[in-house]
């Protein structure tokens, strides 16, 4: 087990979004623009890291029977911090992400990593894993955000990349478009991965 391997797996082989299929709710909701996807990814990564570290450090202190509620309380605390920081320094993004910031608390990714990894391993591995998952999650969200923003607005991060000739496909920023885009992108990734033997877990 190496620090690098634990980090790198989250980027592709065990990417939380494309492979583990975790964190779907925020994924579909906030990826209507690239900047929203990026912001949500970073916020989640922050909580993942903070929660992972604390839970890992406390793993011997928390009684086994009540461990899930305890993890959740730790995670909820970090989410509260992230929420207030974003509200203070990035109010526009905070408003756009809205309800989905507190919903990071129940992002199966975070609880899952705490339960299955952070509390089973020493802190430095927990950090590696959290960082890898966080980066993997962030790039996946940003990627989807870019695609939907191009189709829905003709822009990337607010910068018009398609000219006047382009008629926006409104569906891209609607719920239906979120589902369709995610499904199609996932299928494309499956085609790309069909060489390797990793299993797609149906969560």
């Amino acid at each position: 087990m190496s620090l690098w391997k634990e980090f790198a797996k989250g980027l592709w082989d065990e990417n939380p979004v494309w492979v583990l299929l975790l964190g779907m709710c925020p994924l579909l909701a906030v990826t209507n623009t690239a900047v929203n996807g990026l912001a949500m990814g970073l916020a989640t990564a922050f909580v993942l890291l903070g929660g992972g570290i604390v839970n890992s450090l406390l793993k011997n202190v928390i009684p086994h029977k009540v461990r899930i509620p305890c993890y959740i309380v730790v995670i909820a605390t970090f989410v509260t911090i992230a929420d207030y920081v974003m509200a203070a320094y990035f109010p526009e993004v905070h408003k756009l992400l809205g309800l989905f910031i507190p919903l990071i608390v129940v992002n199966c990714l975070i609880l899952g990593r705490s339960e299955s990894f952070a509390t089973q391993n020493p802190v430095h591995y927990a950090i590696s894993d959290a960082l890898g998952m966080g980066v993997g999650f962030t790039w996946a969200l940003t990627f989807l955000g870019i695609i939907r923003e191009i189709f829905g607005f003709g822009s990337i991060f607010g910068v018009q990349v398609l000219g006047d000739w382009f008629t926006p496909w409104i569906i891209a920023v609607l719920p239906a478009g979120a589902f369709l885009t995610m499904g199609i992108v996932l299928a494309i990734f499956n085609v790309l991965k069909s060489g390797s033997t990793s299993e797609a877990e149906c969560h």
């Binding site: 008629t167 409104i170 569906i171 609607l174 239906a176």
Partner: peptide
């Protein structure tokens, strides 16, 4: 349905 959602004006 797809077209209606994507290009409502057209």
């Amino acid at each position: 349905a797809f077209l209606l959602a994507s290009f409502p004006v057209l």
